[in-house]
Simulated assay, not measured.
Amino acid sequence: MLGSLVLRIEKVESELFEKELEYGKLAKEIEMLGKTVNEQKNENERLQKQIKSKSETNETKINELEQYNRRSNTKLEGIPDKENETIHETAEKVIQTLNKNIPDLNLTMNDIDITHRIGIFKKNNDRPIVLKMVSRMKRSYIMRHAKHLRKQSAPIYVQRPSN
């Protein structure tokens, strides 16, 4: 009986030793997984900072591009308005008015990218017009000769639109 008890104790000690080895392996594996998780967290934080930085840079570049595109714009005030005026009619009014009052301008529909009124139509209140030119050279010519438009009996004011 003592012999069987000793055998059983040796068997339990053997099993305990195997469990301790298994426990040691699992502890090492958990430690390695913990390090991997920490590395992944650090990488994630680094990438989030990088994304934020790129996003801010992109926003700045987009803003700069938008500002650059607006350099071809001109705001005109004082050209008569009518209800339900189409952009084509607005462009024709702009062309006629500018060609009539600015010497040697010779503005055509091909010189205009787009033109539109700002705001809601109100009787006896002419809405301003945003005029986007195809050529900034033509726009500069108009800006240089804007004084001719201001000197009329019904003055027309030309300015850079607010951004």
Rank of each mutant, 00 (worst) to 15 (best):
L2A: 07
L2C: 02
L2R: 03
G3D: 01
S4L: 03
V6K: 12
L7D: 10
E10M: 12
K11L: 10
E13L: 12
E15H: 02
E15W: 03
E15Q: 10
F17Q: 10
E18Q: 12
E18R: 09
E18D: 10
K19Q: 10
K19E: 08
E22T: 05
E22V: 01
A27Q: 14
E29K: 09
E29A: 13
I30Q: 09
E31G: 08
E31A: 14
M32C: 13
M32K: 15
L33Y: 11
K35E: 15
V37L: 12
V37H: 01
E39I: 10
Q40K: 14
Q40W: 04
K41V: 13
K41E: 14
K41L: 14
N44Y: 13
E45D: 14
E45I: 13
Q48L: 13
Q50F: 11
I51Q: 04
K52H: 13
S53E: 15
K54G: 01
S55W: 07
S55E: 06
E56S: 08
T57I: 11
N58E: 13
T60F: 10
K61Q: 08
K61L: 14
I62Q: 02
I62R: 05
L65H: 03
E66V: 03
Q67T: 03
R70A: 12
R70G: 06
N73E: 07
T74R: 04
T74D: 02
K75F: 02
E77I: 14
P80S: 15
K82Q: 14
E85P: 03
E85D: 02
E85G: 03
H88C: 00
H88G: 03
A91P: 00
E92S: 11
K93R: 10
K93F: 04
V94P: 01
V94G: 04
L98H: 05
N99A: 12
N101Q: 07
N101D: 05
P103D: 15
L105T: 07
N106V: 03
N106S: 13
L107Y: 08
M109L: 13
N110T: 02
D113E: 04
D113W: 01
I114T: 15
R117A: 02
R117C: 01
G119A: 05
K122N: 11
N124C: 06
R127H: 06
P128A: 11
V130W: 11
K132D: 04
V134S: 04
V134I: 13
S135W: 01
R136C: 02
M137P: 00
M137S: 12
K138L: 07
R139S: 05
R139P: 01
S140N: 11
M143Y: 07
A146G: 05
H148T: 07
H148F: 15
R150F: 06
Q152C: 04
S153L: 10
S153C: 02
P155S: 05
I156S: 03
Y157L: 12
Q159E: 15
P161V: 05
N163K: 12
